[in-house]
Amino acid sequence: MTGAKDPAATRLVALRSLLEVATRAVTLQTAAEQIIEACAQPGEVPAQVARQGGRVASDYCRLRGWALDLIGDADRASLEFRVTELLHYHADMIDTCLKLAFPKFRSSRLEQRRLALRGLGEPARTLRDAQAALALWISDLERTDGVVPPR
């Protein structure tokens, strides 16, 4: 044994790990949508929304960090890079909603923006599509490279 790594096997492990990251991010979407909805309600937003929202935003940031570690120098047009961008969007959206719900200074313009919040939008669906595309890509690689998926 030379100890040399098989690039195809290494790539497959990284893609499987990225799929796990994307799956966790998709699972978090329900909590993220609930936070956004709570931030958009008229009146005072309960402090627990800020605490929960901070945790969810932190989770998305952590997932993005892991994804960036996994993708290495992937092309900016690649699916892998797109996943990292979507994770950044999710974290940023939660952070923006919390800032609107708990501003340092209140204004009617900020209040209008807060009340107009409507969820994660199209990027949430795009992340779910990216998760499915990753799963399909991994399946294709396993078939063509003869790699047996772990059980």
Rank of each mutant, 00 (worst) to 15 (best):
A14D: 00
S108E: 14
R106Q: 05
Q41T: 15
L70I: 02
S139V: 11
D140C: 14
F81W: 14
L100N: 07
L19W: 08
L127Q: 05
V147W: 12
T126W: 10
G54I: 04
G54A: 07
R125V: 15
R16I: 00
E44C: 04
I138V: 09
T96D: 14
E37R: 15
S58V: 13
V45R: 02
I138W: 12
I36N: 03
Q131I: 11
A77M: 11
T2F: 03
E20N: 13
R76C: 10
Y60A: 05
T2K: 09
W137M: 13
Y89A: 01
A22S: 10
G43R: 08
R128L: 12
L79S: 01
A9M: 05
L70Q: 01
L98N: 05
A91V: 00
T2G: 09
Y89L: 01
G54Q: 06
T27Y: 14
A132W: 15
M1E: 13
A50L: 10
V21M: 00
E111N: 02
L15H: 01
A116H: 13
G53E: 04
R76Q: 13
E44A: 03
I36L: 05
Q34W: 05
A116Y: 14
P149N: 03
D73C: 12
E122N: 13
T144R: 14
R16A: 01
A4V: 15
W66A: 12
L19V: 04
T96R: 15
I138T: 05
G65M: 04
L19D: 06
V147T: 12
D6C: 08
R113A: 01
P103Y: 12
V49Y: 08
G121H: 14
R109Q: 14
P149W: 03
T84E: 01
D95I: 12
L100V: 09
A133S: 04
R62L: 08
Q131Y: 08
L12E: 13
A31P: 12
A91K: 05
R62S: 13
Q52K: 11
C61N: 11
S78I: 10
Q52N: 11
R109K: 13
W137S: 10
A77I: 08
A74E: 13
L127R: 04
L134H: 01
A32Y: 01
D129Q: 09
S107I: 08
L134M: 10
K5C: 08
A116L: 04
T23H: 05
D69E: 06
A25F: 00
P150A: 07
D59Q: 09
A31T: 06
E142R: 01
L117H: 07
R114L: 02
C61G: 14
A47K: 02
G53R: 03
R128F: 09
V49R: 09
L19A: 11
D73V: 07
